[in-house]
């Protein structure tokens, strides 16, 4: 197995959106135990460089697969479907809902309502994850593509809420 193989192969996992997180974590740690630069502290400069590169690749693969949004984007990429950060959404109903959420967020100036808003957002992200799971299991990639783009909007909003929270506390 070479590390240029797809990320699922690296961890000997089936190519699927539904992923056994425990297994992924366990295999990730087994691999890092083997290639982490700490294991090569005494090796030659070239070997240390190689170890850093391998460990970097394994970290990257792990991050991509661990997180549902990046995992979904990666699965689409394997299908030849590129997802772009700046892709626009034409679904007017979804856009309307997003605008309402943003307006609501702009009004929040206190920590408790902000946290409630955050919980709602997280619930919606969870729902989107379930939707993605269904769409991928039905090989419905075009719909999954739309869901991923919606997902990106929610992730961005989520980040904004977190940085707002940081300012408030």
């Amino acid at each position: 197995m070479s590390l240029s193989a797809n990320y699922f192969d690296i961890f000997v996992l089936p190519v699927s959106f539904d992923i056994e997180q425990n297994l992924l974590g366990e295999r990730y740690r087994d691999l890092q135990r083997t290639v982490h630069p700490d294991k090569y502290a005494n090796a030659s400069e070239k070997e240390r460089l190689l170890a850093m590169q391998k460990a970097t690749q394994i970290n990257e693969a792990y991050q991509i697969l661990k997180n549902p949004q990046t995992r979904a984007r990666y699965l689409l990429k394997l299908q030849g479907i590129e997802t772009n950060d700046n892709a626009t959404i034409t679904d007017s109903e979804f856009l309307m809902r997003q605008m309402e959420l943003r307006e609501e967020l702009a009004e929040l100036k206190q920590i408790d309502p902000l946290n409630a808003f955050l919980s709602r957002l997280e619930k919606q992200i969870e729902d989107l994850t379930d939707t993605l799971s269904q769409q991928f299991s039905q090989k419905n990639y075009q719909q999954a593509y739309d869901t991923v783009r919606q997902f990106q909007f929610f992730i961005r909003l989520h980040e904004e809420v977190l940085s707002l929270e940081e300012e408030l506390i």
Partner: peptide
């Protein structure tokens, strides 16, 4: 290094 990576995943299967 590749050998040790393979070795670490030996016996692991996708299911």
């Amino acid at each position: 290094m590749d050998h040790s990576i393979r070795h670490a995943m030996t016996g692991r299967s996708v299911d």
